[in-house]
Simulated scan of single mutants.
Amino acid sequence: MTTRTPRKLTTSAMIASIAEEGQRTAKAPFGHALTRLADERPDVVGLSADLAKYTDMHVFRDAHPGRFFQMGMAEQVMLGAAAGLAEVGLTPFASTYSVFATRRAYDFLCLDIAEPGLGVNVVGALPGLTTGYGPSHQATEDLAILRGMPGLTIVDPADSVDIEQAVPALAAHPGPTYLRLLRGAVPTVLDEYDYRFEVGRAALLRDGRDVLFVSTGLMTVRALTAAAELAADRVDVAVLHTPTIKPFDRATVLREAAKGRLVVTLENHSVVGGLAESVASCLAFAGQTAHLVPIGLPDAFLAAGALPTLHDRYGLSVTAIKDRVRRAL
């Protein structure tokens, strides 16, 4: 009698690719960018809270084992240690999931790192709705939590090009930074738009007369696809990518929003406290008006499940974006 080994059930809910079918991707762009930077700069060190494989920090660990620190499941200790490393002149990149860096270790980030203005780079994986494992792992409010922290630079890259350029830029930038990490097989899109990442600067990727998309993070890739498809409906859409949430490029947003178009914000974050409210306050404080439509996650704890299904349900898919724009016009 023979026995059959049961087939191991797997799920893509935890670490799923955000790339569309057929889209060009780059594997572990953060890990490779950090490794290249460390090849040139001996002051660069890496830390992980038992998640090196799941934050692409394992690429750096394997290339520079003597400069990698495995802190275990202790995010508060990791950020405290990163602060100490920065105090003695090193440039730490500390990686974990966004929920743990923001909810669990906020006080350490605030008082050990931000208050003394130390050059610690916090790298948060699974930002927003990039995992299907429910509220315990979905960092849908990390931008809202961190925007009020004095001196902290916050970056939400769109693709592998953004990440690869942001890593050395953040290492050279004074003070603490927080990077919302896209990991694994990350789309490669911005190389088609003559794009260069600059801290604190937005980039107009395409122009259009009818609608202005102001987007950040992975939603910029969706915005570009939706804009191209809306052109078939004779809707001309501009896309303004805002990779830096703080400091916010108010001048560029105000200039583009003043052109009389429907303004649509797109973010992989709650509509509370993120990009939409950054744009709204920017307009309000300048005394400028615009028809503003926010596309983002609801002010709610989200469901668990497969990412494509969740993105459709919560309005982040390309189809949902196009439908929302058509209703607003």
Rank of each mutant, 00 (worst) to 15 (best):
A101V: 14
V186I: 06
D162N: 12
A166T: 05
G89S: 02
F100E: 05
A139D: 07
R183Y: 08
P157E: 07
R104M: 14
A94F: 09
F100A: 08
T153W: 02
D156L: 04
L190Y: 05
V120I: 12
A203W: 01
E115Q: 12
L152E: 05
A105K: 08
G117A: 05
F100M: 12
G200R: 02
G208S: 03
D207M: 00
L170V: 01
L111T: 15
L146E: 01
T130F: 14
A125T: 14
L118S: 08
R196H: 14
T140C: 06
A114F: 03
T177V: 04
F197N: 00
F213V: 04
D191K: 03
D107R: 11
G175W: 00
M219C: 12
E198F: 04
Y97F: 15
G117C: 07
A171C: 07
A125C: 15
F100Y: 15
T102N: 09
P157H: 07
L182V: 10
F197Y: 12
Y195K: 00
G119T: 02
A105Y: 12
V123H: 06
R180A: 13
L126R: 13
A169H: 01
S98V: 06
L143F: 14
R147Q: 09
A169G: 03
A158K: 00
Y133I: 11
P150R: 09
L170P: 01
E192V: 00
Q138G: 10
G184A: 08
M219P: 01
A171R: 00
L212C: 03
A139F: 07
G200P: 12
R209W: 05
V161W: 08
F108S: 10
R103L: 13
F100P: 12
G208R: 08
R209C: 06
L109S: 05
S136R: 08
V99P: 07
A101P: 05
L111D: 15
Q138P: 09
G128S: 13
D210P: 14
A203G: 02
Q138H: 07
D207T: 09
E198Q: 04
A203P: 01
E198I: 01
C110L: 15
P150K: 10
R147S: 05
L111Q: 15
I154W: 04
D194R: 03
Y133R: 15
L146N: 02
L170N: 00
T188W: 00
F93N: 04
A101W: 09
G117H: 03
R103F: 03
G119Q: 06
E87R: 14
Y178P: 06
R147E: 06
I145F: 12
L179M: 02
L170Y: 00
S98L: 11
A144H: 06
A139W: 08
A114C: 15
G132W: 13
A139E: 03
T188L: 07
L111F: 15
L212I: 06
G124A: 11
G119C: 04
G124L: 08
A158C: 10
T153Q: 01
L146D: 00
T131G: 13
E192S: 05
G117K: 03
C110V: 15
Y195T: 00
S98P: 09
P127I: 14
R206E: 00
Y178T: 06
V161K: 03
L143P: 05
P176F: 07
V161P: 02
P116G: 10
L146G: 01
V211S: 02
S95E: 07
P92C: 08
A125V: 14
H137C: 13
S136V: 13
P135D: 09
